[in-house]
Amino acid sequence: MARRFIQSGSRWEELAGYSRAVVDGEWIFVSGTLGQDFATGEFPDGVQAQCERALDTIEAALAQAGAGLADVVRVRVYVPDRRDVMAVSEVLRRRLGDNRPANTTLCCPLAVEEARVELEVSARRISFD
């Protein structure tokens, strides 16, 4: 099975030469994703709104790969402000539901100043094309 690349239209993908997601067999690797509206370049107000937007982008990439948030097995969370960890965790818990993937959360600066959260996921489809 050939490796497949998924793009989301982010200017960052073009700038840095990467894919939003790479599908390799039943595995899907989604790049670090900001809570940015790629059409306008704007960031929603607040860390929770940015987390929701990032998850929407991730969910769309997973859908293109024939998967969904229920297929996520690992989440990496990057937040510049440790005070935002609980707010991001609440969004993840609600959106991922009972899936309960492995999670690593790091408090560190992000490459884009307006970004308050960046999410990266790995998923595994049980059945694949």
Rank of each mutant, 00 (worst) to 15 (best):
R100V: 13
G97E: 05
C107F: 06
R125T: 03
A102K: 11
R95A: 04
M86E: 15
D84G: 00
T105E: 08
S19D: 13
V121A: 10
S89F: 11
A61L: 00
V30K: 06
R83N: 13
I58T: 10
R83P: 02
E59I: 06
D37Y: 09
S31G: 03
D71I: 02
F43S: 13
A123M: 01
C107G: 14
R82A: 13
V91R: 03
V22K: 04
I28Y: 05
P101I: 08
A67E: 02
S89I: 05
D45T: 07
M1L: 14
D98G: 15
Y18G: 01
V23P: 05
E90M: 15
G97T: 02
A39P: 00
V75T: 05
R3E: 13
V77S: 12
E13Y: 03
E26I: 03
I58P: 00
A61T: 00
R124Q: 04
T105L: 11
Q7E: 00
L34Y: 14
S10T: 01
N99W: 09
E42M: 09
R76H: 11
R125C: 06
E26D: 14
V121W: 11
Q36K: 12
A111L: 09
T105A: 09
A61P: 00
G32L: 00
C51N: 02
F38P: 05
R116T: 04
L55M: 05
L110T: 04
A63D: 11
V121T: 15
W12A: 03
A111Y: 10
V117N: 08
A87Y: 01
S8F: 08
R76I: 12
Q50F: 09
I58E: 07
I28R: 04
P109I: 05
A49I: 06
S10W: 01
L106A: 13
R125I: 03
P101W: 07
L34G: 06
R53H: 12
L106E: 14
R20M: 12
Y78L: 14
E52V: 11
V77D: 08
P101Q: 09
D129I: 04
R83D: 12
D129A: 15
V23W: 07
I28Q: 04
A87I: 03
L15I: 06
F38W: 11
G17M: 00
D45Q: 14
F38E: 07
D45P: 02
R83K: 14
Q7V: 12
V85A: 11
S10V: 00
L69F: 08
E90A: 15
T33Y: 07
C51I: 03
W27H: 09
E59M: 07
G25N: 08
A111M: 05
E26A: 11
G68Q: 06
D24N: 13
A61I: 00
P101M: 10
V117Q: 09
V79Q: 05
R125V: 04
A65W: 01
R3C: 08
G66T: 03
E26Q: 14
F29V: 02
Q64N: 03
A61R: 00
D129N: 14
T33H: 07
R4I: 12
A61S: 08
S10H: 01
V72E: 02
L119F: 00
C108I: 15
A21Y: 04
L119C: 01
L55C: 05
P101N: 04
L110C: 02
R82T: 06
R116L: 10
S122K: 09
F43V: 06
M86C: 12
L55K: 03
